[in-house]
Amino acid sequence: MSRLSRFFFGFLDVLLAVLLGAMALMVFVNVVMRYTMNSGLPLSDELSRFAFVWLTFIGAVVVYHHRQHMGMETVVAQFGPRGRRVLMGISDLIILGCAGVLMHGTWKQLPINASMSAPVSGLSMAWVYGIGLFTGAGIIIITVERLFRLATGRMSDAELRGFGGEMDDLYDSPARAKAGDRAE
């Protein structure tokens, strides 16, 4: 499962890079065309906006997977291991609820978006805003897996320290520890 997970998130990293590159290219071409020819490509305007929406929602899943989202580490750091486990459980339950609301709302909104078309490309707006289903499902799957590991005692001490904002994972391997000693 870990290998599949690494492959999937590697694919998402590549997809994010492609979306970002495509968005930057479309905006750059439009700026140059407007400056030099006093006209632009309406399609690239619209598609760059859609790419931004997808970039944001897919990026939210990737950032959540890597635990790089915002947190209240100052508060969590005041607690010991048991308190951190409780706070992590509460946090994950709240996140699970919010992701469920996102998924439910996207599902309810999908028929309305499917009946509307983008003004320039004619693309169904369900393709644009349906990404909320992916984001909600992705965050729910990650959170359920984390809650399972937390409840069964399989949460590593490094993850628990990271939840409290401690970034001592640099010294996990002997080679990194030596490199860190030389840097000091």
Rank of each mutant, 00 (worst) to 15 (best):
S48W: 05
S48Q: 02
S48Y: 05
S48L: 03
S48K: 04
F50N: 02
F50P: 00
V53R: 06
W54F: 04
L55T: 07
L55Q: 04
T56D: 05
I58A: 07
I58E: 07
A60F: 02
A60Y: 01
V61N: 00
V61Q: 01
V61R: 01
V62C: 00
V63I: 10
V63C: 03
V63L: 04
Y64P: 09
Y64F: 15
H65I: 07
H65D: 11
H65T: 03
H65N: 06
H65K: 06
H66R: 14
R67A: 14
R67H: 12
R67N: 15
Q68A: 13
Q68R: 05
H69A: 03
H69Q: 10
M70E: 13
M70T: 13
G71I: 03
M72S: 04
E73T: 06
E73F: 06
E73A: 05
T74A: 15
T74W: 04
T74E: 14
V75F: 08
V75A: 08
V75E: 05
V75M: 13
V76I: 11
Q78M: 15
Q78D: 07
Q78C: 09
F79D: 05
F79M: 05
P81N: 13
R82I: 14
R82Y: 11
R82A: 15
G83L: 04
R85M: 03
R85K: 12
V86L: 14
G89E: 12
G89Y: 08
I90P: 01
I90Q: 07
I90K: 06
I90Y: 09
I90T: 12
S91M: 13
S91C: 10
S91Q: 10
D92L: 08
D92S: 08
L93Q: 05
L93E: 02
I94P: 05
I95Q: 00
L96W: 09
G97L: 01
C98A: 14
C98H: 10
C98Y: 15
A99M: 14
A99K: 08
A99H: 09
G100H: 12
G100L: 10
G100W: 14
G100R: 07
V101I: 15
M103T: 02
G105V: 13
G105N: 14
T106R: 00
T106L: 00
T106C: 04
W107M: 02
P111K: 10
P111V: 09
P111T: 10
P111Y: 10
I112H: 15
M116H: 15
S117F: 10
S117G: 09
A118I: 04
P119L: 11
P119C: 15
V120E: 09
S121A: 00
G122F: 14
G122A: 13
G122K: 09
G122C: 11
S124I: 07
M125A: 12
A126I: 07
W127H: 15
W127T: 09
W127I: 13
V128R: 06
Y129E: 01
Y129M: 03
G130A: 03
I131N: 09
G132Y: 04
G132H: 05
F134H: 07
F134Y: 08
F134P: 14
F134Q: 07
G136E: 00
A137F: 03
A137P: 06
G138R: 01
I139E: 06
I139C: 10
I139R: 05
I141V: 15
I141R: 08
I142D: 01
I142E: 00
L147R: 06
L147F: 02
R149N: 11
L150A: 02
L150H: 01
T152D: 03
T152P: 10
G153N: 06
G153D: 04
